[in-house]
């Protein structure tokens, strides 16, 4: 059962990235949904555990949208590792209020940094570096961080509960 919930959480992220975001915010070229998911999942699961769902989501999204994985997708692994790196060294995970605020700002920063990485990795421009666009992307990322935190936390708590249930059930 927990596997199905994991699949549902990955499917939600994929749908958010390929359907909801483009339709709701067509002018946004930065993959805000995937960047935010990388940060939130890493904060909830920890770095090594985040890799299987994150890589699965990346590969599915890129396969549907582009036919194969893009070099730009390496960015999400980098973001995820950076979150884990800073959380461990600053003990942000121990301070939930301050930690969430810092992670939200980190998400905004990571979204602003994506076009530079995409430009370096593919040599193609993603959008004009207009400060107003960057600012709106920054705030949109923070908004998505606030929305995604409870949703993904709910999925993870369900998975944890079911795993414990399986572990302690006596047959």
């Amino acid at each position: 059962m927990s596997t199905w919930i994991r699949i549902a959480s990955i499917a939600s992220v994929v749908l958010l990235h390929i359907v909801l975001m483009p339709a709701l915010f067509p002018s946004v070229s930065v993959p805000i949904a995937l960047v935010t998911t990388s940060v939130v999942w890493t904060a909830l699961l920890g770095f090594p555990a985040v890799l299987p769902p994150l890589l699965t989501a990346i590969i599915i999204c890129d396969s549907i949208l582009f036919g194969s994985v893009q070099f730009g997708s390496l960015y999400f692994v980098g973001v995820s590792y950076s979150v884990s790196f800073f959380m461990k060294r600053t003990l942000l995970g121990e301070r939930s209020g301050l930690g969430s605020a810092v992670l939200a700002i980190f998400t905004g920063g990571a979204v602003i940094g994506y076009p530079i990485f995409a430009w370096l990795s593919t040599g193609m421009p993603t959008e004009n570096p207009i400060p107003a666009n960057m600012l709106s992307d920054f705030f949109l990322a923070i908004f998505f961080f606030i929305v995604l935190i409870p949703v993904l936390r709910w999925f993870e708590s369900m998975i944890r509960t079911l795993r414990q249930d399986a572990q302690f059930s006596i047959k």
């Binding site: 770095f47 890799l51 890589l55 990346i58 590969i59 599915i60 890129d62 396969s63 549907i64 582009f66 036919g67 194969s68 994985v69 893009q70 070099f71 997708s73 390496l74 692994v77 980098g78 995820s80 590792y81």
Partner: peptide
């Protein structure tokens, strides 16, 4: 992290159409 990045980079470089299409 490096292993995951290498895996993605390899898939991006290889760009297997059949794999992307199947997925």
């Amino acid at each position: 992290a490096l292993l995951a990045a290498c895996l993605l980079a390899f898939l991006a470089w290889w760009s297997p159409a059949f794999l992307g299409k199947s997925i």
